[in-house]
Amino acid sequence: MLDDSFDDQLKEIIKQCSGKCQTMLFSATMTSKVKELAVVSLKNPVKVFVNENTDVAKNLRQEFIRIRKKYDGHREAMLAYLVSRSFSQNCIVFVETKVLAHRLNILLGLMGVRCDELHSNLKQTDRLMALKKFKDEEAGVLIATDVAARGLDIKGVKTIINYTLPSKYSKYVHRVGRTARAGHCGRSVSLAGEREFLLLKEIKRCSKTAMFERVLNKDILEKYKAKLDKLEPATTSS
């Protein structure tokens, strides 16, 4: 809520609360805004840190797909390949923009993938409906912006796909933290182009668990690329 500029409203709520009540503040990360809110709302607080939340889960298998320059235009085909053949259920795909989430939802839907989208352009009722469909396994793939990277405890997520790597390692940790929770195993697959290679190296350096390269069959990939090219007019009209 602080990231979405609700800090003024939260401070106003705190002012209206009784001074005799006990107040506890929980946060996944200790940002400057959280510290400022703590000063306003807490009196002589005791700080308890569960962990630093700077590493991925031990039960997470991390994979990456290196996108060479000649395959720059195949990223959508790579995603279609993955969710059609390997990860059609209990999978969250993280993308950077709301527009891209909507586009990919249309594209994959036209290819027969049971998917839905989740981002801030949707009404609250539509967001809740998308989450319900995903939890009830009516939608096997949820295409989401980082609005789903924090604060949502969705049980049973088996796979996280990073359509593009985020800007920082900490954001990557939050994204892949949607799976391999509470002792369960999970998998993350990150598509990494030339621009994302530096962050990929940082992930390998910072993670305590290994990262494996996943190789896609080029012939099959080209078939998915051809299918997507044929669907482009339908996507544009939508």
Rank of each mutant, 00 (worst) to 15 (best):
E137M: 14
D55R: 11
F49Y: 07
T164G: 13
R175L: 07
K225F: 11
I13S: 08
D4M: 15
P233W: 07
K158P: 00
R187K: 15
T179L: 12
D3Q: 05
L128H: 12
L128Q: 14
V56Y: 04
I106A: 09
L122R: 11
K208A: 04
R175V: 02
M78E: 02
V46W: 01
S88C: 11
D136V: 01
A77L: 08
R187A: 01
K98E: 11
S120D: 06
H174W: 07
R75Q: 12
D153R: 04
S84N: 11
L231R: 05
G19Q: 10
D116Q: 05
K70F: 09
V40R: 07
K20A: 13
L107H: 00
E12D: 14
N51E: 14
S18C: 10
H174S: 04
V83R: 08
K218G: 02
S5G: 03
L152S: 01
A38T: 02
R75F: 00
A101P: 05
L191W: 03
L228K: 00
K208P: 00
L128P: 00
K218N: 10
K133S: 13
T29N: 07
E213H: 07
L37Q: 06
A101D: 04
L79D: 03
T145P: 07
V99K: 15
S190Y: 02
N217F: 02
K223V: 13
E117W: 01
Q16A: 15
T235R: 11
S170C: 03
M24E: 01
D126G: 01
S32N: 12
I14K: 11
E137Y: 08
L198K: 12
V157L: 10
K43R: 15
L191E: 01
K204Q: 15
R181E: 12
K225P: 00
Q124E: 13
H102S: 15
L79F: 05
S86W: 11
K58F: 06
D219H: 10
T54E: 12
V215T: 14
E138L: 12
